[in-house]
């Protein structure tokens, strides 16, 4: 295992930012940490639990122009914005990296490929930072990840005194690390890092999920759904902050002569989301909408793509204005629903 000194990494990031787009967590005037484009290592926040907004906005921006059109004599002509080009994301957490792997399955499905999302993914190298100190709301271990899970990353950095252990997971990661002076890590450093990892991994295992999927398979009409969302405001904050929620709306801006098509984050918790032009709405109340959110993450996504669409980042837990806690919801289902057969 290789190690990089803090000052060497900082110098490398300074050089990198002068030739490539680099995103990293930055603290704003109010103390909020979010990914921003940086011009040097000095702008990067040094301690933080996780960013407020998830990584998805760098790959699926909250609003994004898909194309613009001009409608002339010979019919409409379409222009697609240029692909943003190579970038490096520094300092993302393993949970966010894992969420991108899940979204890969959404934006390149069995039939279609979304060029915007997949283009950014292909052009971006992910340098992650393991979580020495998971937050009280984290449960990544429970959903198959972990504070030091390197699986979605190109490089995983793990903090040790004076620097970081650096593990390249992909060719792109190895080639990036080629620009950094690397030392051999000492065995005492490795042992200390392993102990930190073990402790953090245990700490982030707070939500037993065994049997949940089987219960959800038979729970579509269960009375538990009427109780859970009682206090939900349909505000959608949880879905906007969630790294795996990918729903979007598509709108046109402009006139008959010229304009653009834009996609914007949307939420399955919004009443208009499924409303037909006829007035019919298959999910008319909070009961159906909140059920959809939970079912999608813990049942439908598993059926379609083989994993739970929750990475345990805890953002929805921290930021819900009425303290509706996904961990308690999952707990209620586990406790109140018998394992059954679908649907």
């Amino acid at each position: 295992m290789k190690k990089v000194k803090k000052e060497d990494l900082a110098a490398f990031l300074d050089r990198l930012a002068s030739t490539r787009t680099v995103y990293a967590p930055c603290r704003d005037g109010e103390g909020t940490v979010d990914f921003q484009r940086v011009t040097g290592a000095a702008e990067i926040a040094d301690t933080y639990g996780n960013t407020r907004l998830s990584i998805k906005r760098l790959f699926l921006p909250q609003t994004e122009t898909l194309f613009s059109y001009r409608n002339g004599e010979d019919g409409p002509v379409f222009d697609v914005p240029a692909r943003p080009g190579p970038a490096v994301v520094f300092g993302l957490r393993p949970c966010d990296a894992k969420s991108l792997g899940m979204l890969d399955g959404v934006f390149a499905n069995d039939q279609y490929t979304d060029p915007y999302f997949t283009g950014r993914r292909a052009d971006t190298v992910l340098v992650g930072l393991g979580c020495v100190e998971p937050c009280s709301t984290c449960f990544c271990t429970s959903v198959g990840g972990g504070p030091f899970d390197p699986s979605g990353l190109d490089v995983l950095l793990s903090e040790v005194p004076g620097g970081y252990l650096a593990e390249a997971r992909t060719e792109a990661g190895a080639s990036l690390l080629g620009g950094v002076p690397l030392l051999d890590a000492g065995s005492d450093e490795l042992a200390a890092a392993a102990a930190v990892k073990e402790e953090a991994t245990r700490k982030a295992d707070t939500l037993p999920l065994a049997g949940l999927k089987e219960r959800l398979d038979g729970a579509f009409d269960h009375p538990v759904w009427a109780k859970i969302p009682e206090k939900c405001l349909d505000c959608g904050i949880c879905t906007f902050l969630c790294p795996t929620c990918h729903c979007f709306d598509v709108c046109d801006e402009g006139t008959a002569v010229a304009g653009s098509r834009v996609r914007i984050w949307d939420s399955c918790l919004f009443p208009l989301y499924t409303l037909h032009a006829s007035g019919h709405n298959p999910r008319p109340t909070g009961r159906e909408r909140y059920r959809q959110r939970v079912m999608h993450k813990f049942r439908y996504f598993v059926d379609r793509l083989g994993c739970t669409a929750c990475v345990g980042c805890g953002r929805c837990v921290v930021n819900c204005p009425v303290n509706l806690d996904i961990r308690q919801v999952v707990g209620m289902i586990r406790d109140q629903v018998e394992a059954g057969i679908r649907p």
């Binding site: 959404v106 934006f107 499905n109 039939q111 279609y112 979304d114 990918h246 729903c247 979007f248 709306d249 598509v250 996609r263 949307d266 399955c268 989301y273 499924t274 409303l275 037909h276 032009a277 298959p282 959809q292 079912m295 999608h296 049942r299 439908y300 996504f301 059926d303 379609r304 649907p343």
Partner: peptide, 16 residues
């Protein structure tokens, strides 16, 4: 109700 038509915008699901 549909938007993308491609299985990505999430809007039109029935179960999986």
């Amino acid at each position: 109700r549909m938007k993308c038509g491609l299985g990505m915008c999430g809007r039109c699901n029935i179960g999986e």
